[in-house]
Design a protein around this nucleic acid. Sequence first.
DNA 1: ACAGCCATGTAACTTGTTACATGATTTT
DNA 2: AAAATCATGTAACAAGTTACATGGCTGT
Lengths: 204, 204
Amino acid sequence: MSVRQSLLAILDQGPCYGYQLRSEFDRRTGSTWPLNVGQIYNTLERLERDGLVERGDADEKGHVYWRITDAGSAEVASWLTSPVVRSGATRDELAIKLAVAATLPGVDVAAVIQTQRTASLQRMRSLESTPYAGAEPGGPEELAWSLVADSMTFAAEAEVRWLDHIEKRLALHPRHALGLELATERPKRGRPSLVKGDAQAAIL
Amino acid sequence: MSVRQSLLAILDQGPCYGYQLRSEFDRRTGSTWPLNVGQIYNTLERLERDGLVERGDADEKGHVYWRITDAGSAEVASWLTSPVVRSGATRDELAIKLAVAATLPGVDVAAVIQTQRTASLQRMRSLESTPYAGAEPGGPEELAWSLVADSMTFAAEAEVRWLDHIEKRLALHPRHALGLELATERPKRGRPSLVKGDAQAAIL
DNA sequence: ACAGCCATGTAACTTGTTACATGATTTT
DNA sequence: AAAATCATGTAACAAGTTACATGGCTGT
């Protein structure tokens, strides 16, 4: 929802045409996440479908200006006054991956953790060493860029902390404590493995 | 990709039927993110389409077992040996939102930050006070649950730290330093606002 | 003239997600 | 007998994303 909402929020400041919205989005996010132009037009059509924006006539230069509706403005206001909720809905790809990997017999969780940690540390280093390659230094775009870069840095740091934490935690638990190991030597294919209770008998 | 990959990784341990996959996923993630059963069947069909799993015949109980293919196993191996990359692709909804909000004249960024911080702190409190409501305490599911819960806690802490950080940072910058304010009194609708340079003349 | 950017669009596709239908088995 | 759970599936949709087509304008 972030692209959709961002474009809507920008339009709440006044009418814009598609291509313009892209550059506005890029400026405001410090060009951290490049946005394919085509997506602008898709998103605008979907916003129009939902009654949040209206398509204006093209001006003499052929620019098609879009303007926000009252419903759209209300949506923006609601967006800005309510927090981004990370709870139930949003799935953390890394957390899922490690939770699953940790319960998979035959998987070297420590190695998975190590791989991730290396990547995260590398990312932190690259974030701190990359100054800002955009237009004017000291300008607003650089500020936007550093906001986003800081966010990534804090997230990467937290990631490393978490990895260290679960590494210790998992080291305390013997493998079989997870109760998800196979009865025999990792049969891989053609044999049941994860079945609980009597479902096992059904295949054997 | 996390659901898709998780199911594939579970199937790499041995054939499973759809409903079983759901419970396996739930167990392994501590039921933190409930997974709609229908999604299992969709995902399985898509994995089959991509040649990563094969549909087996139903057994006497009517259970349709799916088994992974060699391509599927390779995919799992690749998944487990490569890190989750948070870089360019993955967009951080909160970072985008605040970067955009910070450049929007007329928006009380401090209030937005405060709202988010309150929510994040609330979330941290609720995470530390919620023990684990699942099946057997001390069992593997509880461990999985706490892995995920820790991840959320670390992420929420980082979020708060970041919010504090950018709050200070933004306080140093006078509003007009962002260079994105409107020439007049927030015209809202019907007037150009975000145009850069001569594009402004085109509408006026 | 040609390369490259500005600008608008379209079509297709991905993963995630939900709502619903249907029947079998199990529990109360 | 009714309610709940097990189990398989289908249909539709949301949001993100990309590749491509098309034309105008601009600088070399």
